[in-house]
Design a protein around this nucleic acid. Structure first.
Length: 561
RNA sequence: UGCCGGGUCGUCUAAUGGCAGGACAACGCCCUUUGGAGGCGUCUGUAGAGGUUCGACUCCUCUCCCGGCAGCCA
């Protein structure tokens, strides 16, 4: 009676392999039933969507198991880090909704403890000061198939090491002249175990510590200690650190301190973009984009400015799952996530991107019409729109010589104006270049929207704005930043060669519904039949409204052509 | 070549020795006063070869393919 008797096809979301590990740990009481995760960024750049995946994973675990989640900056390299990045990261993590409570932590606050632990390892004769140059260390490390060679300084006495290490800290030696190395095994098949460097001398001001230190711990030495200090139970990281795990285990066990379990998962790759911080930094520094928050960037701040919601990014993270195999996720999945969210929540509006003037020959005055704010959510109510005899419609909603299947306005043809009447195109007016500049149309007064009196059926409904009260706005249309799905996979070519020259189109003279003049930065709307848009927070001023296109609507007509 | 990982629809991800399922994409139909949304349906997959087993995506052996590692970056 216990097995498949429950025929309910309730598809509960299956757990990823990390949840299974944690379930096991809980069963065996490995951590006393505690679950404590963290997100440990280095403040050397802005967060991207791959980081968002990690944040959602780590925070989601803490939330699902009633555990805790820390935000900790891994700020061990003063040469690359900056307070600007700290600030942006905090903002992004908060925006994503990951709750770290009061735990904004910094690895640099642990430097003193790390120093003491290093001294402890020296005393155990498990670490030594090496005078070799970077070149010497590299050449003695061996190769993939040959073991490395012991450093000539490897057998210094504990006393000498203690003295030298203290003097390193005191600033007696120049950059690069000495390092502290763990004494492990130069013959290990794992490079990370070939006497890895724990401290390097860097006379550089740290963004939080100032000039207090001139020796800085390496990531390999510091990272496991940080997790240990914070009582992290599950140290979740990406695949490239798998080879480092034995080293972290070695440090923790030699020190005899709390030993979190490291679990590796595959980082996110997204089609049509790049995800490495180095490349994103290059796009910013060399001005291929308008800053880290350029709406074409795969950064959290870029998606935010583009109009993505935190909810949509969380849903996306849920949809793509977590596994260990390398994968590239189709960006269409992200686009689905934001459309899905905005469809349910975004206020509808009419906006004409490329206006074509219409004059109604048998209509005068102004009529108030009622429009639905969101057909998916009646609680969002309705609004009034004013209908007049001069209007603008979308240029591409009219064709003089339409192909088969074109459902919009054609000479002599009829189309419905959204929320208004069916009109007929009576006359096409062109300029001297033969360009259509105006349409004269007649209104069928019996076809008012919503009255149910119309016996007519028309194939198409198009949107419009009134010439009398439409508001001018700038609209920015974004397309993929790169022209190929994996711009950095070709080792022969530079990813910059694949930049899409048409990734941004600026439309200066779009016309939008009057109520939008009160829209505030970051407000989101669906411009009916055009897509989802939000008010750009960078370029919008009191005099000028700027909209960013977040994503288009799914367009089954466009696909046919 | 050494070590460590990994190979399931086009893409992402489930099935933990018992009906290869879901989502996205694509395609078709229905519906529609947004060519949106929605509804219904279709298509497509276990890298290969052996073995164990009543039964293998799953366990074993071999092969092939992919990724990571030789920073005083993280």
């Amino acid at each position: 009676m216990e097995d498949s008797g429950t025929s309910e096809k309730q598809e509960q979301r299956s757990k990823n392999f990390i949840y299974e590990i944690i379930d096991d740990d809980l069963k065996t009481k490995k951590w006393n039933g505690d679950v404590h995760t963290r997100f440990p960024p280095e403040p050397n750049g802005y967060l991207h969507i791959g980081h968002a995946k990690s944040i959602c994973l780590n925070y989601g675990i803490a939330r699902d198991y009633n555990g805790k989640f820390n935000l900790r900056f891994d700020d061990t390299n003063p040469e690359k880090e900056d307070q600007e990045y700290v600030d942006s990261i905090i903002e992004d993590v908060k925006w994503l909704g990951a709750d770290f409570e009061d735990r904004i932590l910094f690895a640099s606050d642990y430097f003193e403890q790390m120093y003491e632990w290093a001294v402890a390892l020296i005393k155990k004769n498990k670490a030594y000061v090496d005078d070799s140059s970077a070149d010497e260390i590299r050449s003695s490390r061996g190769t993939l198939t040959e073991p490395g060679k012991d450093s000539p300084y490897r057998s210094r006495s504990v006393e000498e090491n203690l003295d030298l290490f203290e003097r390193m800290r005191n600033g007696e030696f120049p950059n690069g002249s000495k390092t502290l190395r763990a004494k492990i095994d130069m013959g290990s098949p794992n490079f990370n175990m070939r006497d890895p460097i724990m401290y390097r001398i860097v006379h550089e001001e740290h963004h939080r510590q100032g000039n207090k230190w001139c020796i800085y711990p390496t990531y390999d030495w510091a990272h496991g200690l940080e997790d240990s200090l914070e009582g992290i139970t599950h140290s979740i990281c990406t695949l490239e650190f798998e080879n480092h795990r034995p080293l972290y285990d070695w440090f923790l066990d030699e020190l005899g301190i709390h030993h979190p379990q490291q679990i590796e998962f595959a980082r996110l790759n997204l089609s049509y973009t790049v995800m490495s911080k180095r490349k994103l930094l290059q796009l910013v520094k060399e001005k291929y984009v308008d800053g880290w928050d350029d709406p074409r960037m795969p950064t959290v701040s870029g998606f935010r400015r583009r109009g993505y919601t935190p909810e949509s990014i969380r849903n996306f993270a849920e949809m793509i799952g977590v596994a260990k195999r390398d994968a590239t996720t189709d960006i269409a999945l992200l686009e689905f996530a934001i459309r899905d969210d905005l469809n349910k929540h975004a206020q509808r509006a009419m906006a004409v991107l490329k206006p074509l003037k219409i004059v109604l020959t048998n209509f005068s005055g102004a009529e108030e019409l009622e429009a639905v704010n969101n057909p998916e959510d009646p609680s969002m109510g309705t609004r009034k729109i004013i209908f007049t005899n001069e209007l603008y419609i979308e240029k591409n909603d009219f064709m003089e010589n339409p192909p088969k299947g074109f459902h919009r306005l054609v000479p002599g043809g009829e189309v419905r104006l959204r929320y208004a009447y069916i009109i007929r195109c009576e006359e096409v007016i062109k300029n001297s270049d033969g360009e259509v500049i105006e349409l004269r149309c007649s209104v069928d007064h019996d076809t008012k929207s919503g009255t149910g009196t119309s016996k007519k059926k028309v194939k198409g409904t198009i949107h419009w704005v009134s010439a009398e009260n439409a508001v001018k706005a700038e609209v920015r249309l974004y397309d993929r930043l790169f022209t190929v799905d994996s711009p950095d996979s070709d080792k022969e070519k530079n990813f910059l060669d694949y930049l899409n020259p048409e990734s941004l189109e600026i439309i200066e003279d779009a016309l939008v519904e009057p109520f939008l003049k009160n829209a505030k930065p970051a407000d989101r709307f669906q411009f009916e039949r055009n897509g989802y848009f939000c008010v750009d927070k960078k370029y919008t001023t009191d005099e000028k409204l700027v909209f960013n296109r977040t994503v288009t609507l799914k367009d089954s007509w466009g696909k046919m052509n």
